[in-house]
Design a protein around this nucleic acid. Structure first.
Lengths: 246, 246
DNA sequence: ATGGACCGTTGATCCACGTCAACCACGAAA
DNA sequence: TTTCGTGGTTGACGTGGATCAACGGTCCAT
């Protein structure tokens, strides 16, 4: 049951086994020995400056990326110039899964701040996941989670009103910051109101107004991109018991 | 490089190698010999009557399903009773991928007509895709395609107006019927206006009105669930050059 | 054939959010 | 420090689609 995969030792500190994101990233749930094998997977790291593209729609697909530091947005541009943000990604999350289906990326990935990603050659991932069972399962789970997440966004866009959407967004951010060891109640958004609006299917003015309203109601404190959640329960209530719905 | 997987010969006619959906379904792009190996994958078939559930949100995840005949919708129910249809699936398409991530299904799958699915035990799929490379790649592509499709729906929900959404929906249906050897211009919808509305983030009245408007404009002919597309180009134009946008 | 449930259509009205516009806050560059 | 540009806030107003309501067609089950 020994693997015969050639072990190209990757440069020292790149190792998954030494990365503190192990619990969020692809190696999650894998055994120590399995994770050791992963170290050959991450070929290189790549730094992306704020506002720069990691990849663009149409680029040939070669690798997926794990965010090591920083954050990104993914978006789709329509012919007539409209932009739809399809997601925000933070450390430990994967980028590029959309490219597998057609062997070309179907959206743009843009850094929201200076960031760094681990480059995972897709061919290598396929190869290794044939021998490391834990990797195969975890990779499938990562893809599946993306599908579930997208269904959540579809629900939000299809059946919630503006304030519910923003409340859901804030709670989601809070939960993801928490998972990364940051405060659940206080965080810094890396994206603009316009980007939030695009993601939530709203105009930036509507986002801004909803932030102000939440502040007036004592649910949060907003100062530009800095958010403090004062009443988590209140926000949750907003989603479950929409104010005025028959 | 021979596989040591136990070959449990599945009952005769169930075989993928004899299924005319090979070009749409999981075996797409695989070699003859690879497809032969698939036959052990499909453990059984299951018939689902109209309006019955194939699985429900919360059900433990054990298998994914390939639609052999009929069609389905998937939906998510919110606490307060709102329903969001997350997709419509036709023959050859896969169901249940959402369940991998948490090992429980996250949505409901309901037959829109009397249908039949191939049951693909997930454990077996994992096992077999470790030895049959074509299967591994194709499975990843299927999942990735689902992600891309969802991004398309998010774009539709987040940045298109009612008539654009419906036009996009009709063109998508037309394209999928075509891929199955049916007419691109004439087909029978299996879902209600309310289900279409839920999927598109609109109320059923709005869907109905948009259908009528398209008919008045000579783009389509509607008679209940029967649709005839009279002007495909006109529908496409509707999406690319939204009528009244600054 | 006939009654009834469900589905679809259409009209009148309402309101949540988009649009347009003015202004303000902050950070980077000079 | 001033200036400039980008991003955020707020107000006034307009509108696309939701809501409410009435009615019509189709398909079953009896």
């Amino acid at each position: 049951m020994k693997a015969t995969v050639p072990i190209t030792v990757a440069s020292l500190k790149v190792a998954c086994s030494q990365c503190n994101l192990v619990e969020l990233c692809l190696p999650f749930g894998m055994s120590e020995s399995e994770i050791d094998r992963l170290d050959e997977l991450v070929g290189a790291r790549r730094k992306i400056k704020r506002q720069q593209h990691l990849y663009r729609a149409g680029d040939p697909f070669e690798a997926i990326y794990a965010i090591r530091a920083g954050s990104f947005k993914t978006d789709v541009l329509l012919e007539d110039g409209r932009e739809q943000v399809t997601g925000f990604q933070m450390t430990g999350e994967m980028l590029g899964l959309d490219g597998i289906s057609t062997e070309a990326h179907s959206c743009n990935a843009i850094a929201l701040e200076d960031s760094e990603v681990c480059v995972i050659a897709y061919g290598k991932l396929e190869e290794l996941s044939r021998v490391v069972e834990g990797l195969q399962l975890q990779f499938h789970k990562v893809m599946s989670r993306e599908i579930v997440r997208d269904h959540g966004v579809m629900t939000l866009l299809g059946s919630m009103r503006a304030e519910e959407r923003l409340a859901a967004f804030l709670l989601n951010m809070s939960q993801r910051f928490t998972a990364r060891g940051f405060s659940p109640a206080e965080f810094h958004l890396r994206m603009t109101r316009e980007e939030i609006g695009s993601y939530l299917g709203l105009k930036l003015e509507t986002v801004s107004r909803a932030f102000s309203k939440f502040q007036d109601e004592g649910l949060i404190a907003v100062q530009q991109k800095h958010i403090r959640i004062l009443d988590i329960v209140g926000l949750k209530r907003l989603i479950q018991h929409p104010s005025s719905r028959p």
